[in-house]
């Protein structure tokens, strides 16, 4: 079966790659673009490890076919901050020592970043709801909550 040419924007750069019709966006990011930050946990949209931003909104990239991203803007953890210029959430995750095994962290950060864009000052309840789609099998939720709460303060502080 013929491959398709996928044109989209990934981490602010225009990208054109050949993909199979059955490739998911996660497959295309990891296997064809070398962006291995997003992880495949369950492959069925239950764990959140593959979370990326799609036109600014968090999605499970394992549930979208790569070609459904044609013409859209995708952001992965690789495009959230840069070494030396981390996103406030990344700074807070480092400071609080949030990652344990680390597998869920890219997805958690992308979910939290989307939450803070929509709601810069979330309550604890809203943070819990915002990352409800991300499973951490090390069960490191307490530190996540602390780090996101602190980053929310930092983010809002910088804006005002």
């Amino acid at each position: 079966m013929a491959k398709h040419a996928l044109s989209c924007t990934v981490n602010d750069e225009p990208v054109e790659v050949l993909v199979q019709p059955w490739d998911t966006l996660l497959d295309a990011l990891r296997e064809r673009m070398g962006l291995t930050g997003p992880k495949e946990g369950c492959g069925t949209g239950d764990c959140g490890a593959c979370t990326v931003h799609f036109d600014g909104k968090p999605i499970a990239s394992c549930l979208l076919l790569a070609m459904q991203a044609r013409g859209h803007e995708v952001r992965t953890i690789e495009g959230l901050g840069k070494p030396g210029a981390l996103h406030p959430l990344q700074e807070a995750f480092v400071k609080h020592g949030v990652p344990q095994c680390g597998f869920c962290i890219p997805g958690v950060l992308m979910a939290a970043a989307a939450l803070l864009t929509e709601n810069p000052r979330p309550t604890e309840e809203e943070i819990r709801y915002g990352i409800a789609g991300n499973l951490c099998r090390c069960t490191g939720y307490t530190k996540m909550l602390a780090a996101i709460t602190e980053a929310a303060g930092a983010t809002a502080g910088r804006r005002s």
Partner: peptide, 9 residues
């Protein structure tokens, strides 16, 4: 429905 990642799809 689902999580926010699922609801966006």
């Amino acid at each position: 429905v689902g999580s926010v990642q699922v609801r966006n799809l």
